[in-house]
Design a protein around this nucleic acid. Structure first.
Lengths: 161, 161
DNA sequence: AATTTTTTGGAAAAAATTTCTGTTTCAGGC
DNA sequence: GCCTGAAACAGAAATTTTTTCCAAAAAATT
């Protein structure tokens, strides 16, 4: 169970993972050791999954996002497993959801341009037989964050000051 | 312009930003200093945007993803600006795209459950008058990565070994 | 109410890593 | 062949992380 301090720590490091523990400690009102220990525990407990560097899509030539909606008539467990396996191998697919409603699956694909998307699309349908695929192009990424809202965390009962 | 070594470095740190520079250097076949300098430059040049900790959605109670499609009749620059501003303030909105095609805007929203989504939705439409909103719920996140494909990088002409 | 156990925090030292400095190497141009 | 600049290296200095040991507070038990 997390408390107010853990939440503060998470808020800091999910925004910037380069801040030294001593500085985090200062900001949350602890000394380095207990703060360091809390971070360790958050990692052990799997609250912190990993630390990564985020790259500029422009710089790596993948500024176009395409949302790919897939409707299929295949619904067996086995089929999904194979499908998921195959999709996972495409580095262009950065997100992949199983949906409720009309659409069965939704992919977010990143590529340099429309031509590249077409090439990707051909490679995709060559690998997997899918009945209905439709693509929606993003013109602009207005917001993108890896920071999750922390307001829904169920806090441990906090001691009154 | 990036070369083969930069690409290797990016590949490593966009996957795991905790690896020491000395270890990265070893893996790409450099000593620490030149490797460190390359990383510095990649940061200066904005290829590396930031380093962050990724949290477990389950652990912070935001395991439900909802894709919100918005169709509007408002299309002025001014309206979009205000709209974007407002959306940005909702921490539940982790992605926000301006789309081509039927849908004008697409949001990815993360919340604990359907009820919370309803509450979020009410707060959203209270702030902004939007004509048509439709929500699609993700049942399962099959893949989610912040790692961009590096295969589209235009490499600097590499010297033959 | 007193005692023990457990938890949490702190200071300081040790270890590891990052950052910087000066020097060397190497390819290409003159 | 020699110069020039870019890129590499080794090692020192600075910073940060990690460990160790101890104190205080809180919780549980007698």
């Amino acid at each position: 169970m997390l408390d107010r301090l853990d939440k503060k720590i998470l808020s800091i490091i999910q925004d910037d993972a380069t801040i030294p523990v001593a500085e985090i400690a200062k900001r949350v009102g602890l000394s380095t050791t207990p703060c360091w220990r809390r971070i360790q525990k958050l990692e052990e407990d799997g609250v912190i999954l990993r630390r990564v560097a985020l790259l500029d899509p422009k710089a790596v030539n993948t500024k176009v996002t395409v949302f790919v909606s897939i409707v299929t008539n295949q619904h067996s467990e086995e089929w999904l497993k194979r499908f998921a396996e195959l999709i996972r191998e495409f580095p262009e697919v950065v997100e992949f959801y199983r949906m409720s409603g009309q659409v069965d699956y939704l992919l977010r694909v990143v590529v340099p341009d429309i031509e590249s998307y077409d090439a990707f699309y051909k490679r995709l349908i060559a690998k997997i037989e899918i009945s209905d695929v439709s693509s929606a192009f993003a013109m602009e990424q207005i917001k993108y964050t890896t920071s999750l809202p922390l307001s829904y965390i169920q806090l441990e009962k906090d001691k009154p000051v």
